[in-house]
């Protein structure tokens, strides 16, 4: 392996992101379960259906993206690149930003709801989704190349 290889740095970074995201969004899942258990109207009433949807989506996406970070770290470990190629730098940044923004958008979208419409913070979702799509595309293309 090249001495300038930055792979271990990326692996550590994404493992760190992955496990922290898992911790945060699994905790959110537990909080949602608790609200179910105590039949909290703020989360469960019909008027708050949109909030419920938003936060469930935040929980599932946040957890999934935690796993995606770990999968990315494993991918880098299994197929290391020489040096610090641009695709990996970009994929790492975009994956990090996307996995942060998308579930956060769902969380914010559920804080205030207008009947069926979430709060404007939900706009982070398409931004995050786009960043993630590009990041995953970069990884997929490079996985194909190698």
């Amino acid at each position: 392996m090249n001495s300038l290889d930055a792979t271990p740095t990326y692996v550590r970074r994404h493992l760190r992101w992955g496990w922290w995201l898992l911790l945060v969004y699994l905790a959110l899942g537990i909080a949602l379960e608790v609200m179910h258990g105590f039949k909290v109207g703020y989360y469960l009433s019909v008027a708050n259906e949109t909030r419920r949807l938003m936060w469930r989506l935040a929980h599932t996406h946040g957890t999934l993206f935690g796993l995606l970070h770990i999968a990315f770290a494993v991918t880098l470990k299994l197929a290391p690149s020489d040096g610090d190629p641009a695709w990996r730098r970009w994929a790492s940044k975009l994956l990090t930003a996307g996995a942060l923004l998308l579930p956060l958008g769902f969380v914010l979208g559920g804080v205030i709801v207008y009947e069926s419409d979430p709060w404007i913070g939900v706009l982070l979702v398409p931004v995050g989704a786009l960043l993630l799509l590009v990041a995953v595309g970069l990884v997929a293309l490079n996985a194909t190349r190698t």
Binding site: S45, V46, A47, E49, E115, S116, D117
Partner: peptide, 9 residues
Amino acid sequence: RSCHASNYE
């Protein structure tokens, strides 16, 4: 219903 769930209910 899809937009006015509470009132529909």
